[in-house]
Design a protein around this nucleic acid. Structure first.
Length: 495
RNA sequence: GGUCUCGUGGCCGAGUGGCUAGGCAGGGCUCUGCAAAAGCUCGUACAGCGGUUCGAAUCCGCUCGAGACCUCCA
């Protein structure tokens, strides 16, 4: 079997994955800043790492997955008088900052649940780790990598870069960055425009504030991830992930903080999920080129002709590799939905297979499974995995006509593998294959449809085509499509 | 302006120095009372121009185009 390789964006190449501690994986992913609803781009990132989390577990690793909630410190801009995003939103909405945090944290969790992501092992908040952040800041001052100025503390990039490669992750070099920067109107407490805040003094108007050795203030955005990843995963851990847009400055600063405070760079492997575009363009609130998760599910958007189930969305997202830019469009989603339905129908066919055939079939399930593993071991290549799943679909269908394709053992083995790949690894929902209603209403509809289809069957047996076609047409007008098969008729709801 | 990434058939989207990606759509066929559904099957793409090579869509250079981050501007 092949070994898992991961593309490390720090080294810029595919690397064999070797966990620090055999059998265990420490995974840290930068979570959302909870000052507004999560958008679909965020969802894509978290789905990508959900896949990583799921596959590592499928491989038998015991994974500690830490994904933070940023509820303080993320500034609206990087100017010296930058405003905290949560605090700014609290003013606009006339709410306590923690009401903002609560509202959007709940929204985030609802969305994550809707998309069937597994909850992280630990979900720490920035405000819950002020003590750790102050301690790390003190350590950085003690080590000579930070300085206090007017109640704020800044990381000294110039000094740090003399002995450390600041810019190593994002491929920047300090001279170019320096030359590309201009002095900030002379009011800055920073020694260099490249320096970034570890702790910011809170002005009188600032509502989110904590006591510190430097007076009332709040932590800098980058610091929380360094403090919390170190606390829960150690000074050196396996994988750090996040969206591509966080590579610089956020992750660059994290590395500097980690190295400055502990001497270790934090993660061994850095993974970055790529961005999502809508109709070929970057999502942007100002141009209206945007889509919220809820809008995707409900179809309540000018960009969509209908809603799509979360499983279809997941299937669509995993049909692209996490490191590629993925373009969302109604057309592409419709294509994904049809493909996904074909896949789930094949699985149902396999579940209903009535045995028979030789013990071993001609389709080599073991070799197929190896190919699936190879795909995922190659930097979590889910598109290839899905292509292999469709190979299995063909085999399942061929087996319907000639049960020597799978054979009894092959069918059982394939069923187990298919279920694991689809539900455990890809995180698709077993029930949502047809994206029809659920629960009691679904049962009631099934019962009613059973009567209707039975009446139609009787009409057809008597060659009463007028009646059978009338039933069919009237159901179609009501949005229900009748499908006649060799074993009777089924139906599906047209959306 | 800087750094980086990318440009694949009608659409989405993998991959790669020589061997079919896959899905959707489209053509043909089978099944069927008709239709739908379902199944089978076909399609030879890799931005442009040079170069390296026995051979490149895959490596190198340039051009054009797109995107990300930073900067600039405001």
């Amino acid at each position: 079997m092949s070994q898992l390789h991961i593309f490390d964006s720090h080294q810029g190449s595919l690397q064999p994955f070797r966990p620090v501690q055999e059998g265990h994986v420490g995974l840290y992913v930068c979570g959302p800043t909870v000052y507004s609803n999560v958008h679909l781009g965020n969802v894509r990132t978290f789905l990508s790492f959900d896949l990583v989390f799921r596959y590592l577990q499928y491989q038998g690793y015991k994974v500690r997955y830490v994904r933070n909630i940023t509820d303080a410190g993320h500034l609206v801009d990087d100017a010296d008088e930058g405003e905290d995003k949560v605090g700014a939103r609290a003013k606009v909405e006339k709410l306590e900052p923690m009401e903002i945090v609560q509202r959007y944290t709940v929204d985030f969790h609802n969305v994550m649940r809707a998309f069937n992501t597994l909850p992280p092992s630990i979900e720490p908040t920035a405000t819950g780790h002020i003590v750790e952040q102050i301690a790390m800041t003190q350590q950085l001052i003690a080590n000579g990598w930070a300085y206090e100025a007017n109640g704020s503390v800044y990381f000294d990039v110039e000094t740090y870069s003399q002995t450390h490669p600041y810019g190593e992750l994002s491929g920047r070099n300090i001279d170019e960055m320096r030359s590309g920067t201009r002095d900030l109107d002379g009011q800055s407490d920073k020694r260099s425009p490249l320096d970034f805040a570890l702790w910011k003094k809170a002005s009188d108007a600032h509502i989110m504030r904590w006591a510190s050795p430097w007076g009332d203030g709040f932590p800098g955005w980058h610091l929380e991830c360094s403090a919390m990843s170190t606390k829960y995963l150690g000074e050196t851990f396996d994988i750090h992930g996040g969206g591509m847009d966080l590579k610089f400055p956020h992750h660059e600063c994290e590395i500097a903080q980690n190295k400055g405070a502990t001497g270790c760079g934090g993660a061994n492997v850095w993974m970055h999920a790529n961005m999502l575009t809508l109709n070929g363009k970057r999502m942007s609130k100002s141009t209206g080129n945007t889509l919220l998760p809820g809008e995707l599910l409900s179809g309540d958007s000018p960009h969509l002709t209908k809603g799509y189930s979360a499983s279809v969305a997941r299937f669509f997202i995993h049909q692209a590799h996490y490191r590629s830019v993925l373009d969302f469009s109604d057309e592409a989603l419709q294509a994904a939905e049809k493909g996904y339905q074909r896949l789930t129908h094949a699985l149902q066919t396999l579940e209903k297979r009535v045995g028979g055939g030789p013990a071993k079939g001609t389709f080599d399930v073991d070799a197929w499974q190896e190919r699936c593993l190879d795909a995922m071991n190659n930097d979590f290549n889910s598109p290839i995995l899905i292509a292999h799943l469709f190979d299995a679909v063909k085999a399942i269908q061929a087996d319907q006509n000639d049960n020597s394709h799978l054979g009894q053992e092959g069918a059982a083995a394939l069923l187990g593998h298919m279920r694991a790949w689809m539900f455990e690894v890809l995180g698709l929902h077993p029930e949502s294959a047809n994206s029809t209603g659920s629960g009691s209403s679904q049962k009631a509809l099934d019962a009613a449809m059973h009567i209707v289809l039975d009446a139609r069957r009787k009409a057809r047996e008597q060659k009463d085509w007028a009646t059978s076609d009338a039933i069919r047409d009237q159901l179609a007008a009501g949005g229900i499509q009748v499908k006649d098969g060799p074993d009777g008729s089924t139906y599906s709801i047209q959306e």
